[in-house]
């Protein structure tokens, strides 16, 4: 027996986005938004493939703030590197072995790496066990890998409990 509300978080997100797009809290829009928020998950549920969900919402929120702060730091660093009168870059490809396994956590990790200082994720190996990064200015490969594993991957493992 299927329930009427299979994905409560998705429904809430759809309703909030609908209200933001229309910039209103009028009852008509609330009603229409609620109907859409109920219908869309029911119609698209079969297209989903199961992914681990966020088990620790507060830690996820803290992780978001950490990433936002790191984006600021990343931009200062990129600006400093690019505005030098003579470019002095030490570009490199680095391979990071992954401890997390499923698709969604790996996607979050790769996106985080792309937005944070000095690194862009370039590829995932076919068996999803290693991640290829491009680094703009590499000092020490082992230190970079340790930082990524400690700062981001360990936290993601806690958040998704995997």
């Amino acid at each position: 027996m299927r329930t009427w509300l299979p994905l409560p978080h998705t429904s809430l997100l759809l309703l909030v986005v609908w209200l933001l797009l229309n910039q209103t809290l009028a009852p008509g829009h609330l009603l229409l938004g609620s109907v859409l928020a109920l219908l869309i998950p029911l119609l698209t549920m079969r297209l989903r493939n199961p992914q681990p969900s966020i088990k620790r919402p507060i830690k996820a929120l803290l992780y978001l703030f950490l990433v936002l702060w790191d984006i600021l730091v990343a931009n200062m660093q990129v600006a400093r590197l690019m505005l030098r009168p003579r470019l002095q870059l030490r570009p490199a490809f680095v391979e990071v072995p992954l401890d997390i396994t499923q698709g969604f956590p790996i996607t979050v990790l790769a996106s985080t790496i792309s937005l944070t200082p000095g690194t862009v994720s370039a590829d995932v190996s076919a068996d999803q066990s290693r991640l290829l990064l491009h680094v703009l200015d590499l000092e020490d490969e082992a230190q970079l890998i340790a930082t990524i594993k400690r700062r981001y991957e360990a936290r993601l493992r806690e958040i998704f409990e995997c």
């Binding site: 990343a74 931009n75 470019l87 870059l89 000095g118 862009v120 491009h134 703009l136």
Partner: peptide, 26 residues
Amino acid sequence: LLGSFGLVRLPDFYTRLHAPTKATTL
């Protein structure tokens, strides 16, 4: 502006990728 400047200045494709990804988002 910095993101677009990096797009013109940096030497090869993989380093150029860094500029728009980070600077343009911020």
